[in-house]
């Protein structure tokens, strides 16, 4: 499980509608926004980084008023434990 602290940048004047549309994404928690409404502070939760990337893309595709989603913080401490337990044979197939 990873949890982000992210900024969703939206087109001027669209923050209220974006807020409503974000309700369709339970993985996103709105925590606050700037005075202009253009920057929304959110958490995004995903199982792993790949899922996070595809989720962000889906959000952007679904809500055209979103200009950009930028991450300031990603917590993935559980992942480190998983990674340390791996050996290279777990996920690489050398071809030479």
């Amino acid at each position: 499980m990873i949890i982000t602290g992210s900024v969703i940048m939206v087109m001027p004047g669209t923050s209220q509608s974006v807020e409503k549309e974000l309700l369709a994404f339970p993985q996103v928690t709105l925590q606050g926004k700037s005075d202009s409404g253009m920057d929304m502070i959110v958490n995004i939760e995903a199982d792993d980084h790949n899922e996070l990337e595809s989720l962000c893309q889906k959000i952007k595709d679904t809500i055209p008023a979103i200009v950009d989603i930028g991450h300031i913080y990603i917590n993935f401490e559980d992942e480190i434990e998983k990674i340390q337990a791996r050996t290279w044979q777990d996920y690489y197939a050398p071809n030479e």
Partner: peptide, 18 residues
């Protein structure tokens, strides 16, 4: 963790989370 993460993001943009 969610609050911390949101706090870092808010601080980056100088936004207070009331």
């Amino acid at each position: 963790i969610k609050l911390s993460a949101a706090g870092f993001a808010a601080a980056a943009l100088n936004i207070s989370l009331p």
